[in-house]
Simulated scan of single mutants.
Amino acid sequence: MSRTPDRSPLVFAHRGASAALPEHTLAAYARALREGADGVECDVRLTRDGHLVCVHDRRLDRVSDGRGPVAAYTLAQLRSFDFGSWHASGEPAGVLTLEELLDTARQAGRPVRMLIETKHPNRYGKAVEYRLRAVLNRHGLTSAVKDAPVRVTVMSFSPLAVRRSRELLPSLPTVQLMDLLPPGLRIRRLPFGTRIAGPGLELVRRRPDLVRRLKAGGHQVYVWTVNATDDVDLLLKLGVDGIITDRPGEVLAHLGR
């Protein structure tokens, strides 16, 4: 039975509707938007010739028929690989650039939130955040305008990358991702003025008090990756602000949306 609280959390599609279709593909994101996801989440890495592509792993092996580090290839070379047939759906797909995903979000016909995670460590270090700023500038997305067709939030597990994003893109919200509690971290205070925490589901299960303490400190909380309805119910009770899921349609239905 679905339960709708006074304020339903935002639902973000993790790498698109990635349970149904290959992650980080245009088809996966298009499906998530059709299903009504409030936003989408993506990981970005730099190619050898300076393009941001939506790929989670450092290496190509798991999600394509290519081999080796993403950073070793140009965009043209990556386009020669199949990024879809590995998935159970069997649908072939090409590599997706961040620019292409931004265009897709713009065409949704409604406001879309986008969570962009910069991956670290990587071969090009801070160049990822600098390139992200350039891309967002080109698309006019460096300001947090409430009624903008696409509203961007930048995330990372690296506190230094989060600080760099705050310095380069001061108008955009940032998320400090975490899968464990670093030694010395004050639960009520996130590093470098970040206002959104992004704990993993396993961490929240082990430490449900974490959400309460973060909320008491004035932070929002987005939890990843949440696919089971029992876990959705747990997060509703805890009052989280965002749910990041591989199954956006199912989570929305459970929320009564």
Rank of each mutant, 00 (worst) to 15 (best):
R189P: 12
L190A: 12
L190Q: 10
P191V: 10
P191W: 11
P191E: 12
P191Y: 11
P191A: 13
P191C: 12
P191G: 12
F192I: 13
G193V: 12
G193N: 11
T194E: 13
T194V: 14
T194M: 13
R195M: 12
R195G: 09
I196E: 02
I196T: 07
I196L: 07
A197P: 05
A197Y: 06
A197E: 10
G198A: 10
G198P: 00
G198N: 07
G198R: 04
P199C: 11
P199Q: 12
P199H: 10
P199F: 10
G200M: 08
G200D: 09
G200C: 11
G200E: 10
L201F: 03
L201G: 04
L203H: 02
V204W: 01
V204K: 00
R205E: 06
R205W: 04
R205H: 12
R205S: 06
R207M: 06
R207Q: 09
P208W: 03
P208C: 07
P208M: 08
D209N: 08
L210N: 03
L210K: 00
L210S: 00
L210W: 01
V211G: 03
R212I: 05
R212K: 10
R212M: 05
R212E: 09
R212L: 14
R213Q: 06
R213Y: 01
L214T: 01
L214N: 01
L214A: 06
L214E: 03
K215I: 09
K215G: 09
K215F: 07
K215H: 14
K215Y: 04
K215P: 02
K215N: 08
A216P: 04
G217W: 07
G217P: 08
G217A: 14
G218F: 08
H219F: 06
H219T: 05
H219C: 08
Q220S: 07
Q220C: 04
Q220G: 07
V221L: 06
V221F: 03
V221A: 05
Y222E: 04
V223W: 00
V223Q: 03
T225A: 14
V226D: 04
V226G: 01
V226M: 06
V226N: 05
V226Q: 03
N227A: 11
N227Q: 10
T229R: 15
T229Q: 15
T229F: 15
D230I: 15
D230T: 15
D230Y: 15
D230R: 15
D231T: 09
D231M: 11
D231P: 06
D231L: 12
D231H: 10
D231N: 10
V232A: 14
D233Q: 13
D233V: 10
D233I: 11
L234Y: 04
L234M: 13
L235D: 02
L236T: 08
L236W: 02
K237P: 00
K237Y: 04
K237E: 14
K237T: 11
L238E: 03
L238Q: 01
G239R: 03
G239K: 02
V240E: 00
V240N: 02
D241F: 06
D241T: 07
D241S: 06
D241Y: 05
D241L: 08
D241G: 07
